[in-house]
Each structure stands twice: as structure tokens, then as C-alpha cells.
């Protein structure tokens, strides 16, 4: 007991230090490239945290999470291109787009485990093929996607340009922190505990009277909405929404981030996402051409090393150290 108490202030201290670290990125980043990398990493972190709700807490190994990211990216892009680029409605559009598509994708909820994984994968590939279909090019841009997506405009401070890397970074950081706090509240709530119960033993939860399907559906929709939010940010970060974002490789990278970071911890997958973005950039830019071409292979080796030697992921490593 006393040991726990001693740990708490340290944890707070760690969190505060981490927050200061995040806030100060634009101050010490050597150039705007690294500020942009930080934004990219945070967007991917939001995406990975939303996936962690499914994989880590609800025990639903979704391999099609990219579909919801793409829904947010396309929804946000269409909204910004045709209606308005005001920030708050755009954030809502990202959430709504992800949530609505999750409602469609919920047919995968009938299955569990590996079957759920395959169904979500198939669902996302269908979304990808619709997005890249040139017959719908007038609306969705075909395989080129939607381009010239404007950056959002802040409410009450329209003159603070989100084209500036640092400003956009603070926007993604704010959203990432809100998403983290929201997800942390969800997993700590009775709802979150029920999800964990369903993960451990669905039959038992059912016999206790929990409508488990509804719980799983709610988790799926929350995760989809937050993935859509990440997608909307990613779309305005890249000024475009492209079909490739819905491809299974995007889902795969997010899954790697969750596992490498340590699932069922939120911060773990966020850290994993940052590592994946850095590895992707670093490994694919290696000076040795032969190696750079095989960055996926190197990422795979790193991933296997994590699975073998750090089964709890980065978060597990931190926990072991703290204990």
C-alpha cells in the first residue's frame, strides 16, 4: 500500500514531464520537418489509441480500422472542399463519418476472433475498392483521390494559420490529448469494465444479463468515430484524401503500433504509433539503397523482436521498470 502511494507522485511527475516534452516540440525541433513528423506521429497515435479500445480492451482484433480513418479523411475533405473549412464542424464531420461507416461495418460483429479479423479486413478492402473506383471519380476522385483539401480554420482566431507547422502541431496535440482523456475515461468507466469482461468471457457476461452485442457495437462505433477524427486530421495534414489510406497496409501498421506499444494501455499504442512513424521515415530513407527498399522487412524484424523480447510492448517495459 505504501509502495503504491510512493509511486503515484512519480507517475504524475512523469505525465507532467511528458506533457512538457510534447508542448515544447516546436521549440527544440531542428526544423519544420520534425514538427511535421511530430504532427504525423500524433495523428497516427490517435488512430492507434482508437484501435486499442477494440484490440486491447474489448478483445476485438479489427484488421480493417483503416476504413474508418479513410471515412474521416474523405468526409472531412468533401466537407472542406464543398462546404466550409471551419474547424469545429470539420472535427464533427470526421467523428460522424467514422461512426457512420462503423455502423455499416458492424456486420462483422457477428463473428469473433480470427473470423472477426478476416471480416473487418474484407470490409475495409471493399471500402478501398469503392474509393479507388474510377466510375465514382466525379465524387471521390477515383484512384487519385481528393486533392487541394484546405487546412481547417480556427474559430475566433481565423488569422492563426494552420498552414504553419507549429500551429497545426498544437491542433493535433490538443485533439490527441482530448482523445486520450476521453478514452481513458471510457475504459475506466463501468462501460469499459464491461468491455473487459466481455473480452475475458463473453458467455458469462451474457448470462449475467449484459447485452454484449450492444456493448461491442458501442465500442466499435466509438473506435470508428475516433479513427475518423484521426483521418480527418490526416487528410488536412496531407491536403488530400487518397484511397491508399483505406488499404489493409494502413490497418496493419496501426496493429503493429498497438502491439509494439503494448495493448490495453492507450499510452502504449500512442508511443508505438510514434515509433512506427519514425521507423517508417527513417528506415525508408536509409542511405543504403538496398536496405531502404526493404524497410518493411526491417520493420518486421523490429516487430518480431518486440513480440519475442517485450511481449508487453513499450508500455510493458515501462511498467516493469516502475515496479
Amino acid at each position: 500500500m505504501s509502495r503504491l502511494r510512493q509511486l503515484r507522485p512519480r507517475r504524475w511527475l512523469g505525465q507532467a514531464a511528458f506533457l512538457v516534452f510534447l508542448l515544447s516540440v516546436p521549440a527544440w525541433a531542428p526544423n519544420r520537418f520534425w514538427i511535421n513528423v511530430a504532427s504525423q506521429a500524433l495523428i497516427f497515435a490517435i488512430f492507434a489509441m482508437s484501435l486499442d479500445l477494440l484490440i486491447g480492451y474489448a478483445g476485438m482484433p479489427s484488421f480493417g480500422h483503416a476504413a474508418f480513418y479513410a471515412a474521416g479523411a474523405y468526409g472531412g475533405a468533401l466537407w472542406a472542399l464543398h462546404l466550409s473549412s471551419a474547424l469545429l464542424p470539420l472535427l464533427a464531420v470526421g467523428l460522424m463519418a467514422g461512426a457512420s461507416l462503423a455502423l455499416v461495418g458492424a456486420l462483422a460483429l457477428r463473428a469473433r476472433g480470427i473470423y472477426f479479423l478476416m471480416l473487418t479486413l474484407a470490409f475495409a478492402q471493399v471500402v478501398w475498392s469503392v474509393l479507388s473506383n474510377n466510375q465514382l471519380a466525379n465524387v471521390l476522385g477515383g484512384d487519385i483521390g481528393l486533392i487541394s483539401v484546405p487546412r481547417p480554420v480556427l474559430p475566433f482566431a481565423a488569422d492563426v494559420s494552420l498552414f504553419r507547422p507549429a500551429n497545426f502541431y498544437f491542433l493535433t496535440l490538443t485533439v490527441a490529448i482530448i482523445v486520450y482523456l476521453a478514452l481513458a475515461a471510457v475504459v475506466a468507466s463501468p462501460f469499459g469494465h464491461t468491455l473487459e469482461g466481455i473480452r475475458e468471457n463473453e458467455g458469462r457476461m451474457e448470462s449475467l444479463g449484459y447485452p454484449t452485442f450492444r456493448y461491442r457495437l458501442a465500442a466499435f462505433i466509438i473506435a470508428g468515430a475516433l479513427a475518423g477524427l484521426a483521418g480527418m486530421l490526416g487528410g488536412s495534414f496531407n491536403f488530400s484524401a487518397t484511397p491508399a489510406t483505406a488499404f489493409w497496409t494502413t490497418s496493419g501498421l496501426a496493429m503493429i503500433a498497438v502491439i509494439m506499444g503494448g495493448s490495453r494501455s492507450l499510452v502504449g499504442p500512442a508511443a508505438g504509433a510514434i515509433v512506427v512513424v519514425l521507423l517508417q521515415l527513417g528506415l525508408s530513407s536509409l542511405p543504403a539503397r538496398g536496405l531502404a527498399e526493404r524497410w518493411q522487412l526491417l520493420l518486421g524484424v523490429v516487430f518480431i523482436a518486440f513480440v519475442l523480447f517485450l511481449p508487453g510492448g513499450l508500455y510493458g517495459l515501462l511498467r516493469r521498470r516502475a515496479a
Binding site: 483521390g145 488530400s240 491508399a244 489510406t245 517508417q280 530513407s285 524497410w295
Partner: peptide, 13 residues
Amino acid sequence: EDEEATPDVALAK
């Protein structure tokens, strides 16, 4: 830099 034939990667590069 490797374009990879993925728009987001090409833009990051």
C-alpha cells in the same frame, strides 16, 4: 527518396 507508389509516403518524403 523512395516514392513507394503510396501518395502519403511520397508526400512525407
